[in-house]
Amino acid sequence: MTRDMICVSCPIGCALHVELDDAGKVVSVSGNTCKRGEKYAIDECTNPVRMLTSTIRVNGGVLPVVPVKTSVPIPKGKMFECMKAINNEVADAPIKLGDVLIANVCDTGADIIATNEV
């Protein structure tokens, strides 16, 4: 199996070509011009993660929502599940930047934390 992707580690955007074995293990990476490209390809093929940002409803605040993020990047495939949990949550003002609004969201090990105050 092979996968083609564009590296996002820097603005050059190398076209990466990845060969995988039947177990999904990376056999080789080509097209990269630096070490970061190889790491990016392996991460994307084995455990792609993303930082998730969104908003949570607020009761009694100046604004109706507070922006939030995951404390660490979460598996890419869990983004929509985490969005559901975020959209089911309502927080009470006042909220401080850094407050944990959902602990260990969807068992990802990441907390949902406020990124502004309301």
């Binding site: 922006p67 930047l97 990124t115 502004n116 105050e117």
Partner: peptide
């Protein structure tokens, strides 16, 4: 890596 509101804050 920060979000916009965090950078502003």
């Amino acid at each position: 890596e920060l979000t916009g509101p965090e950078y502003a804050h």
